[in-house]
Design a binder for these strands. Sequence first.
DNA 1: AATGAATGAGATTTCATTCAT
DNA 2: CATGAATGAAATCTCATTCAT
Lengths: 192, 192, 192, 192
Amino acid sequence: MPKSGIIIEALKKVIIEKGVKNITSEAIAKKAGMAKGTLYLYFKTKEDMISTLVESFLKEGEELVGSSLRTKGGAIAKLRAFVEADLSFYEKNHKIFRTLGMENSAMGNLLSKAKKKMILKRYFKIVEAIGRTVKEGIAENKIEKMPPIEGAVLLMQIIHAYAGMRIHEISKCSIAGNTDKVLKIFLNGVGV
Amino acid sequence: MPKSGIIIEALKKVIIEKGVKNITSEAIAKKAGMAKGTLYLYFKTKEDMISTLVESFLKEGEELVGSSLRTKGGAIAKLRAFVEADLSFYEKNHKIFRTLGMENSAMGNLLSKAKKKMILKRYFKIVEAIGRTVKEGIAENKIEKMPPIEGAVLLMQIIHAYAGMRIHEISKCSIAGNTDKVLKIFLNGVGV
Amino acid sequence: MPKSGIIIEALKKVIIEKGVKNITSEAIAKKAGMAKGTLYLYFKTKEDMISTLVESFLKEGEELVGSSLRTKGGAIAKLRAFVEADLSFYEKNHKIFRTLGMENSAMGNLLSKAKKKMILKRYFKIVEAIGRTVKEGIAENKIEKMPPIEGAVLLMQIIHAYAGMRIHEISKCSIAGNTDKVLKIFLNGVGV
Amino acid sequence: MPKSGIIIEALKKVIIEKGVKNITSEAIAKKAGMAKGTLYLYFKTKEDMISTLVESFLKEGEELVGSSLRTKGGAIAKLRAFVEADLSFYEKNHKIFRTLGMENSAMGNLLSKAKKKMILKRYFKIVEAIGRTVKEGIAENKIEKMPPIEGAVLLMQIIHAYAGMRIHEISKCSIAGNTDKVLKIFLNGVGV
DNA sequence: AATGAATGAGATTTCATTCAT
DNA sequence: CATGAATGAAATCTCATTCAT
C-alpha cells in the first residue's frame, strides 16, 4: 500500500477509535506508524487528508452506482443491484459509519464550507444517476409516476434504514439478506 | 429570553452561518452580543453549550413523539400525527439541519464520545416509542408482521428523505403537504 | 465585627480550606456571606485584602514584642515573655500557618514585590527589637558575646521549630509548655 | 543541558527576578528562549514545571542528607556533615530562596493541595532521617534525652537561622564558616 | 451601602504545520 | 524521503474588577 493509503487507513482508525472530535495529526501519524512531518509529504493539510477520505467514499459510491446501473435487465433489476452493492458498501464500512453517521453531511462537517459544497454537488450526481434509473422504472410502468429524484432519495434512505440498523446493532442479521426486503418495501411498503 | 437561551440561539446562528468547523467561543459571544467571559457564567464549557443545543433538539423530539402518539384513533392515525409533527420540526429547523445533517449522530460528532453515547441512548428511546406504535399497527393488522423497531427506523428514514429534500432544496414544495405521501409510501411503497 | 474584619476572617478561612492557590474573590465573598462587589467597598484590590491580613499579623507581632519587652526584670525575663507570647500567637493561628508556612516570606509571596519589601522591612524592625534585648542579655553577661541580631533570629527560629512541630502535629503537647524548653535550648543547647 | 533543564532554570530565574506572583508561561518561555508551546512538549502543565523544580530541591536535599549521614564517625560528626552540606545548599540557592522563603511549605504554596501534601510527606522523610542520627547521638550520650524528631527539627531551624541571615544579607560572612557555630549552638546554646 | 451580572484582559493550553537535520 | 522538535497563532477558559440597579 502506498504511504498515502496507509495514512488514510490510519485516519479511518482514528475516527473509529477516538471519534471525530479527536482527530489530530499526532494521532494519525502514530496510528500510521510514521512521523507527523511525513503526513505532510503526502497531503498538503489535515483537511486534505479528510477530504481524500471523503472522496474515496464518494468514488466508491460512484463506481458502485455506475456498475450497478450497467446491470442487464430492467430498471428494477438495476435498482436491485444498486441496493445490494450499497448495503455491502455500508457493511464493509460499518465501523467508521457508526462513528460518523451515515449521511455524507456528517463527513462534510469535518471540512470547510467550500469543500463541503463541492462534496454535496458530487453526491448529488450519484443521486441523479439513481434518479435516471427510477425514471426508467416509471417508463417501464414498474414505479408510479413521481419526480425521479424523489424516488432516488427515498430508496437511498430505505437502504440507510437497514444499513443503520445493522451498523448500530439493532438488527443482527447480515446486510446481504436485506436486499429484497429493501426493494420490496420501496415498491410495496409495509402495509397489509 | 434568558441569557442561556440567547447563547444557544447564537450558537445555532454560528453553526448555520459559519459551519460546524468554525464554532468558537469568540464567534458565539459576538453573535450573542456579549463578552466571551459571559458565556462561561451560563455554561461550564463550550461542549456544554453544544450539548445543551443537542439536548434541546432531543427534548423537542421527545415531546413531539409523546404528544403525537397520544393522538386518539388507531396506530395509523398516531403515526400520521407523528409524521406531520416531525416534518414540521425539520421544517422549523431546516437551516441548522442543512449544516448539521439530519441524523442525530451528526450532532453527536461535536461532542465527546461519552456525551455522544448518552445522546444515542436517548435517541433510541424515541425510536422505541415509535416502535411501540408500529407494534399496535401490526396488532391492528394494518402493518405487516415485522420487528417493530425496524418499522420505526424505516418510517423515520422516509421522513428524513422528504425533510432532507426540502432542506437541501431539492424539492420546493412545503413539507406539510408531504405527510400523506410519506405515510402512503411507508404503507404501500412506490410500486405500481 | 466591621465588614472589613469579616472579609479578612473570610480570607483566612479560604486560605486554610482551599490553600493559597485558590484564593478568589468569589470564594472570599461566599465565605464572608456577602456579594463580590461588596468586597471592593472595603478594599481597593484583592492584594489589598491579603496585605491587610499580613499586616494584621505584623501588627499583632509588633504588639506582642512590644509588650513582652516591657516586662519587668532582666533580659532573660523579657525574652521569656516574648517566647511565651510568640508561641501563643502561633498556637492561636496554627490553622492558617499550617497552610502558609511560618515565615513571613510565605505570605509575602501572595503580594507584589514592592509590598513584600515593605513587609520585610517592618518584620526586620521586630527582629531588631528582640535584638536589643539580646544585647541587654549580653551586657548582663547572661548571653555570650555575639551580634545581637543573630541571637534574635536564632531565638525566633527555635520558637518556629517548636511552633511548627505543634502546627504540623509532630508534637502533641500544648505550645504553652514549651516556653521554658525553648529558652533552655536557646541558652544551653541540647548537648549533654 | 536538556530542554527540560533549560525550562526549569528559566523558571528559577523568573521566580528570582519577577517574584512568585509573576510566573507566567509567557515569561518562562521568554527567559528560556523558546516558544510558549515548547514548554508543553516537556511538561504537561505549568504546575508540572513548578512541581519539578520543587522536587529537584527535595531530591538535592535527600541526597545531601543521605551522603552526610553516611559520614564515618559518631552522630555528632554526621550531624556536622549535614549542617555543612545544608548550609552550602542554601548558599548555592540563596537567590531563589530569598524569594521563595526557606521553608518547603512556601514552595508548596505554588502547587495544588494534593501536590503540596505529597511534598510535605517527602520532606518529612528527610526530617526523620536526621531524627535517626539524633537518636544515635542520644544513645552515644552526646545529646540529651529528647524526641529525636524534635532534635532534628530544631537543628534544621538553627541552620535556617544562619542560612536566612546570609540569604537576607543580615550577615555578610560566608555560610561555610557557620558550620561549627550552628553545631555549637545546637549543643550548647548561646548562654554564658 | 449592597449586589451580582457582565466585562475583557490575560492566562493556560493545543495543535496544524514547518524545517533543519 | 523521513523525521520530530519547535513554532506560534489561535482557542479555551479564568477571574479581578466595575457599575447599573
